[in-house]
Nucleic acid binder design. Structure first.
Lengths: 387, 387
DNA sequence: GAGTATTCGTTGTGGTACACAACATATCTC
DNA sequence: GAGATATGTTGTGTACCACAACGAATACTC
């Protein structure tokens, strides 16, 4: 809720300018003025504040034959960073991500057995301490954590991450105490949605559904009205556990006939005769195999995926549905089929406004998404960095 | 998006004060000050503006033994009104609703056959002109229309209202031209959700799903983060067309196995041996009939409803699910059963934060909801009334 | 029943933020 | 090199809210 005093106007305008730079990259002062609708003098003052805060820097204009006095280019300083954390079954990835969108470094810590929350917290603390962010003059805005499970976003407690076997594990608070940084935790697919919204397939849209197919299950995240849909406690968007059939195949939550139970990478891998494959190998192998057996499985899985996506369309009326992981491969196997199947269960008006497309961001998706979460307080209130 | 100048601060504060009065009823100046966090002098100025705009009036304080100087009570003037319109298969209801929540009058125009959009527009224009709102010194903020179908909220075109057999019918714009008022159009269940959020079962919650069971089908509306979820074009929330079974029973949109196809009032009426019944009669008759035949139908319908609600819980993580129409009767038939069924398909963390409850608003639900829609521009920017 | 404490409206002052106009500056065009 | 064009810079004006001091209206105390 806005405080209601004149000073939030400053906050909002600072946030507007910084947000434009965050999403759109470097821009001239005059371009910022046009896009925010602010006066030249105001933009000058706003940019000055952001420079003083150490968030942006101004550089000489590009000499591109514009008439008139050149306008300085404002860029986000790459030293403004966030730390992204993503624990998975077999590894923990920790990245240092700049507010300018660059992933400065990632560290991957492998586990030979599923790590406990305590183990992950331990490694996080030492790795983050060892990053020497202060030494390098970096400004760390905070830590964002992408967890494959349901996270109570209010206090960063991991309520249930079946694949990690974490249940009601406090994570945000202990990590904040260990690192001294502000820590925000959320579901991994939700952060994928955030990243695709800000930089990927949903760049130009404010209503996006992201569905990710991973080795261990299917997750979903929803952007509505330009913001991440959390619901009451942050659990919203769990598209993988939507029931799509009457079968009794079980998903990771123990529910029968859900999208995650019916549409699995494992089944496809088995049909392809592959013991394991990275995402690129998987997609190549799937697209190459046109056998009846594989085609039948794809058709069945596409049918269930279509049902789930139709449900999402009927409920969220998104402009874009971005498919991540093996779901993108599934769609690519038969480029028109998924659209047909969805059309059989989604209302026509909602259908005409939606595009089902592969996600655009690659392996850094979760790093960018988690960092985006960590940057949010800064992007909402740029002056908060100084306090 | 906020304009970014100091004047929006005024707008926001005016909206905050008016919003408190709208949702909470009359309040003293000092109470408004406490709840908005504004200074006494600011509140005085804000209330003064609202009085000048003709939106509120001040009256002598209640003498309730408070220490200190009594604070004047600020109330919304009942003359501030909106016109609510609700076309249905067999009748058109037009109501005059005060910003203070009172339904001043309703006019019901019956049809012996399904009316066309042109006919409804015609009746609306004459009825609204005949209301003599100007004559009575009323301030009409606008017209809100609740349509049983999918509405493109941007321009008020009814895209598809199967029961009315309206398809791509412009409605908002012609009605605006005919009446001279600002007209907003939305789906009826969405407006039901709005009303239940503001005044009913979701009064104290910002995440609500409303599901209505009517004679002709099942509609849904969703409030997330305190605002109505519209999606890209305003079609979001169509819970009735979510697939819940593999059967080939068809719903009004021609889709098989959906909630609307499986859970119908007509089937229950037939089992009860009633040719027709109003909502109260229906609920009484259903609760009285404990025959095996009826119990079996209820059990099956509750199962499908449970599946759909579990989907809603997994996707929206609401705090409240409000059941309207015969769905409330269905739940009441077996008070604990629906919760059990939902628990079998909804993720535990999301489940613990939700309450499934009958809707609280009675027959005026859609009048209040449609008026709430019409009041929205005024509540967002109270000063806009003078322009 | 008079004095005091308490609460709240009112008024005047100060601080912050943005718009606007006038001026200065830097580039392009011819 | 002069004019046109676009933009940064500076000073002024306006809108808004917080705060403090004062006054008003009630309840409480003895």
């Amino acid at each position: 809720m806005p405080k209601g005093t004149t000073e939030d106007v400053r906050q909002q305008n600072l946030a507007a300018v910084l947000g434009l730079l965050y999403r759109g990259g470097p821009a001239s002062r005059s371009s910022l003025g046009r896009r925010t609708g602010r006066n030249r003098s105001t933009i000058g003052s706003l940019v000055g504040d952001l420079v003083d805060l150490g968030l942006v820097s101004e550089s000489d204009p590009d000499l591109v034959g514009q008439v008139g006095r050149p306008s300085p280019v404002v860029s986000i300083r790459p030293e403004v960073t966030a730390i992204a954390v993503n624990p998975e079954i077999d590894a923990l990835t920790i990245g240092l991500v700049g507010l300018d969108g660059t992933v400065r470094s990632t560290i991957r810590h492998e586990y030979d057995r599923i790590p406990t929350a305590a183990q992950v917290l331990d490694v996080c603390a030492t790795v983050i301490a060892g990053m020497g962010a202060d030494r390098d003059g970096l400004l760390v805005a905070g830590v964002g954590v992408a967890v494959p499970g349901q996270v109570r976003t209010g206090d960063g407690v991991v309520r249930n991450a079946p694949h990690l076997d974490w249940h009601d594990q406090p994570f945000g608070q202990p990590l904040a105490e260990a690192t001294g940084h502000r820590v925000l935790v959320a579901n991994d697919a939700a952060l994928g949605a955030l990243a695709e919204h800000e930089f990927g397939a949903g760049r130009d849209h404010d209503h996006l559904v992201y569905v990710n197919g991973g080795a261990s299950g299917i997750g979903g995240g929803v952007i509505t009205g330009g913001t991440l849909l959390g619901g009451g406690a942050g659990y919203a968007g769990e598209l993988g556990h939507v029931r799509v059939s009457g079968s009794n195949a079980l998903d990771s939550a123990g529910f029968a006939g859900t999208l995650e139970a019916e549409v699995t990478r494992a089944e496809l891998l088995a049909a392809l005769g592959l013991p394991r494959a990275d995402p690129a190998q998987f997609e190549a192998a799937l697209l190459a195999d046109r056998s009846d057996a594989v085609a039948a499985i794809v058709e069945r899985q596409l049918g269930h995926l279509g049902t789930a996506l139709a449900t999402a369309i009927n409920l969220f009326n998104p402009e874009v549905i971005a498919l991540g992981g093996f779901l993108a491969a599934l769609q690519a196997y038969h480029p028109t089929r998924l659209d047909e199947l969805v059309a059989g269960a989604a209302l026509a008006p909602s259908l005409e406004g939606v595009r089902i497309t592969p996600a655009e961001l690659g392996p850094n998706l979760l790093m960018v998404g988690a960092a985006g979460l960590a940057f949010r307080p800064l992007l909402d209130d740029p002056a908060s960095i100084s306090g």
